[in-house]
Design a protein around this nucleic acid. Sequence first.
DNA 1: CTGTTAGCGCGTTCAG
DNA 2: CTGAACGCGCTAACAG
Lengths: 379, 379
Amino acid sequence: MVGKRPTLAAVAARAQVSVSTASLAFSGSGPVSESTRERVLAAAKELDYAGPDPRARSLRRGKSGIVAVAMEETVRYAFRDPVMIAFLDGIAAEIAAAELALLLVPEIGHGPATVETASMDAAILIGCSPVVMESVEIARRRSLPVVALGTPPSPELPAVTLDDRAASTALARHLADLGHSRVAVVGLEFDGSKHRGPLTPAKEAAATVQVSLDRLHGVREVYPDVPVFVTGGSLVEEGWHAGRALLGLPAGITSPPSVPDTGGLDLFPADGSVELVPRPREHRPTAVIAQSDLLAAGVIRAAEELGIAVPQDLSVVGFDGIRIDTVIPHDLTTMVQPATDQGRAAARMALDLLDGVVPADVHFRSTFHQGATTAPVSS
Amino acid sequence: MVGKRPTLAAVAARAQVSVSTASLAFSGSGPVSESTRERVLAAAKELDYAGPDPRARSLRRGKSGIVAVAMEETVRYAFRDPVMIAFLDGIAAEIAAAELALLLVPEIGHGPATVETASMDAAILIGCSPVVMESVEIARRRSLPVVALGTPPSPELPAVTLDDRAASTALARHLADLGHSRVAVVGLEFDGSKHRGPLTPAKEAAATVQVSLDRLHGVREVYPDVPVFVTGGSLVEEGWHAGRALLGLPAGITSPPSVPDTGGLDLFPADGSVELVPRPREHRPTAVIAQSDLLAAGVIRAAEELGIAVPQDLSVVGFDGIRIDTVIPHDLTTMVQPATDQGRAAARMALDLLDGVVPADVHFRSTFHQGATTAPVSS
DNA sequence: CTGTTAGCGCGTTCAG
DNA sequence: CTGAACGCGCTAACAG
């Protein structure tokens, strides 16, 4: 079924030219007379030759034409995050414009390291974690150009960064200006553990996810003692769980002093087995700072289910500015990050490195978007 | 900055063994004494050798370890579709398990054909259109194994298929059983044109997207003359536009006989410049069959905005069964397709082909899910 | 403009 | 178990 493919040499022979001439005719990068080129192309068509073998070409040229995008997450998980999709969209656009191909390398750190064995000319690492840094080391050994997206800048690694900290401060200040003093943070994951619950000092000390820390530090500039509820990642569902924990209480129980402390995955089971009532006003925050828009959407949903009106009874801010009405039915007050542009920038840095140009770090700023989910604290 | 990488030969020399021995030590596929292997590995570490060059290896072995996934859409667009994400998730899982890498090839048909020039051992084509068929031809010339996902089966091309037609009939029958007779279809795109509007016979004759046709034919078994409103693709926003067109009317205009005929993108502008009121009951459908869940969600949103209650005043069914509460806040009546499994199956077929096994087509069946968006027609 | 020559870095023979 | 030689398919230099 799989007929032996003809080689360039065969085509050259058929066209009665030398192999190198045939090669030039295909790559188009050399001076070949029109008549000769046509003869070669005709011979190729006759032999059903599909063009130079990419493998041989890449060995010879020392380039594979592939840029890899490595991320720690599963495809399933990563693609549920609109920010990640926007990153990829920007990257894909630039990569395609440069006529390169895009290798998807999910789940780095699980199983055999694809970054170590796959053909690639450069790698773009998304996310910040020890695993990612390991990949940097691998890439360095292979002398592959690497750029990072969403990693704290380091002298070793050209990176695309965002003003996570300052942006978070801006959000916190916005709430402070509205008079809020009882504020809680709903955080992204702080380590790989996907465990939900309050952020303890121990957990904070062991944190590996820089973006969560940065955003938290930014809030602390305004609310130094803000309590933090950590989620398992940027998902509406996670925000919903967090919202229930922060705002709700099992019916019949008199108000406990604080958020339930649990390392488990389900604080209040979602199956309806526990009926939730809103916490008394004095025992719940008047504003929530979610570290992503998806989390914010979940918090809002939980609030609505509990009969807590947003923004009248609760202000909620997010982060990211994903303008996908599909996902967020609310006009969220948030910081908009130019995710697609960040992807483009990362890809361009990788392309620069391929051209031997050492690119400077690119820093992006997010912009405040006043939505309809924040209001002055109700007295 | 980019130091010359050591080669296998250098490592061999350093370890005072022959190149072939060193090679065996790395690939692990040959009989090498433990002491020798350690000596080789030590030498590699000393020289900071990162392992065999993937390019050279792939030339020599005739395999690149890459499976490509080609799709017609942009990354941005494709990743907004949960079904596509589920496909990719299933594919990625199998590909990773086989220790292969996944090359993303979006926007085939636009610009230079990556399928033609990129290193790959096999390709998985998603979607059905002339462009995809072109890629099949290219792959054939390169004698690359190809499988298709979401393409009508053909003797040439191993494919993963779904019972689109029968499933659609089941949905239509469900509505018929509930007593609905004024039914409309909100369709996916029928060609590449992204134009919204009623499906005309001419447009139907020129249709290239098989899945839309199949799902329509299925409905016609029950509702032979069902009117169809074509959208620009599987997006909530598109469903919203369609819903407004089918259910709404600019305030002040007395009921026109039918859906507005337009080839433009905006039927009733979304900016609020036109105030919409619900069509009179007699002039609007009592049930809508959306060809995807995202479209259905958009229709429902439009209905709610117009004050038309679902399911009391309007029944809506979808297709896909994407159980992502993020996207669809409703418990939609729909046909659930096992999208992740379809992705896995497609990937396994590709892997089979790589092993020289000719796989049989895999056919999936979708299952009916009775949600809360359909009810008996109100008299 | 075209032909000749020499590898790219590795895997696989086949003798030792 | 090891070492030497060859070639995968192509392209970068040069020579003509």
